[in-house]
Design a protein around this nucleic acid. Structure first.
Lengths: 160, 160
DNA sequence: GTAGAACCTCAAGTACACTTGAGGTCAAAT
DNA sequence: ATTTGACCTCAAGTGTACTTGAGGTTCTAC
């Protein structure tokens, strides 16, 4: 986070000009090779110049940002692909397009958050009572008191 | 979730007997090959019978369950390894051992949950105002209005 | 005591998400 | 005009998290 990318030396574009792959990379923090990769998966799209170089419409920045966030949260690209399913790739997506995608995402995120919250609660409870090592605690599934009924670690597994 | 695993036909063990790899697998839902793999990473441990077969102490069930949950939440095994760092592998962990691990985990989970919550809020805002496709919205970083200052999609990236 | 299920090791294969490298082209500046 | 940096394609390599298979051993039940 130093003066390493000083865009004052970079070409200044009109606000609606398409971006080169290098610009996309600098702006999103995603390597050009990864952008190639995402394009191969159909997660993003580009047009080509007469000289076969990629040019990205500005709305691709958002797609890449969303991919990045998803990754950070451990969401696989296949899920991102689904979330983007109805968002047009080649034209600028409409208000409604992104609204739909947003709602879809939000449901997915809610599930994830709930999974984490559940685990947090369980761990918190166990911090309080120390039951992570005690048979009496039903939260994290005691080592084996339920086991012989074939229950297994249900509490930790039924979160789907 | 049918009558597929009917433990009434399985060997019934005294509550403190060690488990075979097959039993571990059935109880945790984790494949034997994965248990081998986790053992290679030092995430779990086993003793061996005179005939070189693995036997797992019952407290390994909890370790495996925690690994499974972590995976579901997109937490890499290396992080799990760290979280387990001070929890004894070969003897039954003490109350204090698991307490320490719980606290560590909880901090990690909090960060993750916060990341997800942030994204949820952003998406929610965008559902409300439709800004996911509008330049005026600063939440998801507008396509490019901040871009020429070299800021990039900061709001989505500074969440670490 | 022997059949069959469950287990063992070790090597190789798979899927995901990329990166790296080779060999070549394109574009902006001198 | 030529250098330099950015770009292109395609193939192969990397790290993570396993699975699969071959070839052999052990355990349990009959």
């Amino acid at each position: 986070m130093t003066a390493e990318h000083d865009d004052t030396q970079r070409p200044a574009h009109a606000p609606d000009e398409p971006l080169t792959i290098g610009e996309m990379s600098r702006r999103t923090g995603v390597a050009p090779s990864a952008l190639h990769f995402y394009e191969g998966l159909g997660l993003i799209a580009s047009t080509r110049t007469s000289g076969n170089q990629r040019r990205y419409a500005r709305h691709m920045l958002r797609r890449v940002s969303l991919i990045t966030v998803a990754k950070r949260l451990g969401i696989p690209l296949s899920d991102v692909q689904e979330a983007f399913a109805d968002v047009p790739l080649t034209e600028t997506p409409s208000h409604a397009d992104w609204q739909r995608a947003s709602r879809r995402w939000k449901r997915d995120l809610e599930k994830r958050r709930e999974g984490i919250e559940r685990l947090e609660r369980e761990l918190t409870g166990c911090i309080g009572c120390g039951c992570l090592s005690m048979k009496a605690c039903g939260l994290l599934n005691p080592d084996d008191t339920l086991g012989s009924q074939g229950s297994g670690p249900q509490r930790l597994r039924d979160a789907d």
